[in-house]
Write a protein that binds this DNA or RNA. Structure first.
Length: 669
RNA sequence: GCGCCCGUAGCUCAACGGAUAGAGUUGUGGACUUCGAAUCCAAAGGUUACAGGUUCGAAUCCUGUCGGGCGCGCCA
């Protein structure tokens, strides 16, 4: 019976052998196993590992190809390295295949759910703030990306040995909240989610939209009465003018447009302000906000009631998506917290007070404390506290940041928020630095691109109804999963009572893998008409491979009395097909992928890895039978057992990786 | 105007500064009496937006140009 070293030990052994060979040929190189980084050759025919000799050659001041050739020439095979070949500047290593496959399979078999787990983040306690919704409307597809990224990130960090606190900062106060409340007060007829049968967050969202529509109508009437073109309100007109100028080819027309732009000045903003100042509706919303801040019992009661509905709705969506939180912060609790700190900043001389009483941080100070962040940016001074003492977003964020570190003794604080807020967080972290908090260096904005709609479909804006609603999206996906299951019901292996559960699991796998495989800094294009596929490079395909392996293992146990736990003397040397090596080689990468993912705060490498692993497995499986035909004959027992072991290792890694992404892996589907 | 991000196959996306830039999808042609066809195989698809530069080597780094997105609020 053969025993195998653990994978990490084995890889270290390879590096040591290699280092020894290099030392022997080039005693001056001073190279050790720790200096060696092993890569994957472009084709496994060349070898399982590759050592690029560029750094070594630089050290020796020789040509990398000659160095590689010299080392290869002297190499004597070891128990683990069968062959060392130079190919240009690379040394390609061909390992003793049976041993390598044994190491990988046995390591996975022994470590099970802990394969790939590390202590990389030992001693660090990290808060991952994500989701952070407003309580005036339901979650949309943009929030979905946020939630999935946040959840996966938290999982990965925990797996890498960090202490992790998952937090949600609920934005539950402000004018936008009052808008929904006012609309409900005016036109709601005391309806409730129960009475209307509408999910709480959607119901409140309807009133928000109703308010915005009413305000829009008011603006139209106002514009007509003042004889000002409606398009001149707000900043949008200025923006469209700029675009027109850009596109304009005719010089005289262009001059005319540029003239108009100069004339415009701040008119758009001015018109909008003038409109709002006299607006009946907006005035009422503001009054409601003031009453809220003064603890008016009636307003507070309404606020409590409606926020309760929204949060109930969110909870349902979070449960469906599998989002978990250890701590909820509510802006209504924390919004006053920043005030004292901001005042303190004035005393310290890092912020300043305007004659009207408002408090600001100057652009100069920001440049001073974070020169690199603001290089080349024409910054304006930033308001931290209004003249009337009320908070803005920044005030609240300063307070909450401090509270987080106090509450949990954090070493790092991560904010999963879309990239449109990059500047906001640069300023926030700089303000914290100015206040003298040393941990400000350990605050990180984890940003990701937006979710965009296909060309011609406008932008995702919940106010204008172009947003793709999160709940709608999920239920549409579930409906499609059920349709698909119906189509292929003959081969379905799901018991009747688990149909709904499985359909949800598949739908979410499709959604999550679709979103999580894309690099964080890219926008995702989402086409609501095509939604998301279930075949090809998708989450369900990964689940499918996993379910098939589970089924095969069950069959092996039930019909062929093979107890996987008792397979102790497996001859991995029988696995000599290139596809089997390809799968093994990929399994052995998993711990590195997880490590990279954790260190870069990015889970997309894991998603891409799983898609690729699944593809390689499917190819192997199509070519090399495990428990069918001749494989059931006695003379093939050993080969069959080895293949079963490898398949099980694949299933284990799929399950671990998918759980890091927050995706289920059902045993039947 | 200033700043940040993106530009890779028809489409959606991969590729620690490294070897012949890879998948899926679409379309074409094959493979189910046999481990689950949500699968596999084959051919097809590229001047990595463009122009320079850095070096042994650039899709990746630097400069410029062109496209697209976002930001520069007493909104959050």
């Amino acid at each position: 019976m053969s025993t195998y070293p653990e994978l990490g030990q084995y890889l270290l052994g390879l590096k040591e052998s290699l280092a020894a060979s290099v030392q022997q040929k080039f005693p001056d190189s001073g190279i050790t196993a720790g200096d060696i980084v092993l890569e994957k050759p472009p084709s496994l025919e060349l070898g399982e590992f590759a050592y690029p000799c560029f750094n070594l050659a630089k050290k020796l001041k020789k040509n990398p190809a000659l160095v590689a050739a010299a080392v290869a020439e002297n190499f004597v095979a070891t128990s683990s390295i069968r062959k060392l070949e130079a190919a240009g500047p690379y040394l390609n290593i061909q390992v003793e295949a049976g041993q390598f496959i044994g190491v990988v399979c046995e390591t996975i078999c022994k470590s099970k759910e802990n394969f790939g787990r590390s202590q990389d983040g030992k001693g660090r306690r990290v808060m991952v703030e994500y989701s952070s919704p407003n309580t005036n409307k339901p979650l949309h597809i943009g929030h979905v990306r946020n939630n999935l990224i946040g959840m996966a990130l938290a999982n990965v960090l925990e797996f890498c040995g960090y202490g992790v606190v998952k937090a949600n900062l609920v934005n539950d106060r402000g004018v936008h909240i009052c808008k929904s409340m006012l609309a409900y007060d005016k036109w709601g007829n005391d309806t409730t989610p129960q009475l209307s049968g509408v999910k709480g967050d959607h119901l409140v969202g309807q009133f928000y939209v109703q308010f915005e529509n009413a305000l829009k109508k008011e603006r139209e009437e106002y514009a007509a009465s003042k004889n000002i073109a409606l398009k001149k309100f707000g900043k949008d007109y200025e923006k469209s003018l700029r675009e027109e100028i850009k596109a304009c080819k005719d010089p005289t027309a262009k001059q005319k447009l540029q003239h108009e732009l100069r004339q415009l000045g701040d008119d758009g903003e001015k018109f909008e302000q003038e409109f709002l100042a006299q607006s009946q509706l907006y005035g009422e919303a503001m009054e409601m906000l003031r009453n809220w801040e003064q603890n008016d019992p009636k307003v507070r009661a309404l606020w409590q009631k409606m926020n309760g509905w929204v949060l109930d709705g969110f909870r349902t969506t979070y449960d469906t998506l599998g989002c978990k939180f250890d701590k909820f912060y509510y802006e209504s609790d924390t919004y006053t917290l920043g005030r004292d700190q901001v005042e303190e900043g004035v005393k310290k001389g890092v912020f300043y007070r305007q004659p009207d009483g408002s408090i600001w941080v100057s652009a100069d100070k920001l440049h001073e404390v974070s020169p690199r962040w603001f290089e080349g940016i024409q910054l304006k001074d930033k308001l931290l506290l209004r003249a009337d003492g009320t908070s803005v977003y920044m005030t609240q964020d300063i307070g909450t940041a401090i509270l987080k570190f106090k509450d949990f003794e954090l070493t790092d604080s991560l904010y999963v928020v879309a990239d449109e807020q990059i500047l906001h967080f640069k300023i926030l972290f700089s303000a914290l630095k100015l206040l003298g908090f040393p941990w400000a260096e350990h605050c990180h904005h984890i940003y990701y691109g937006m979710v965009t709609l296909p060309h011609g479909m406008g932008k995702i804006k919940s106010r204008e109804g172009t947003a793709v609603d999160a709940d709608d999206l999920i239920s549409e996906m579930v409906a499609r999963a059920k349709e698909k299951m119906q189509e292929m019901k003959e081969q379905l292996r799901v018991s009747a009572d688990k149909l709904d559960e499985t359909a949800l699991s598949i739908a979410l796998a499709a959604l999550k893998v679709f979103v999580l495989q894309v690099s964080m800094d890219k926008n995702i294009q989402f086409d609501p008409c095509q939604t998301i596929e279930f075949t090809g490079d998708t989450g369900p395909a990964i689940q499918y491979s996993h379910a098939r392996i589970c089924n095969m293992l069950r069959k092996a146990a039930d019909e062929h009395q093979i107890d996987m736990k008792k397979l102790s003397d497996v001859d991995y040397g029988l696995l000599n097909a290139p596809e089997e090596m390809a799968v093994t080689r990929q399994l052995c990468e998993f711990p590195d992928i997880v490590l990279t993912s954790g260190r870069s705060y990015d889970s997309s490498p894991i998603a891409n890895y799983l898609l690729s692993l699944t593809k390689n497995y499917a190819r192997m499986y199509a070519l090399h039978p495990v428990i069918k035909g001749d494989m059931l004959k006695a003379e093939n027992t050993a080969l069959r057992n080895a293949r079963l072991k490898l398949a099980q290792a694949v299933a284990d890694v799929i399950r671990i990786g998918m759980s890091l992404l927050g995706v289920n892996t059902p045993e039947n589907m």
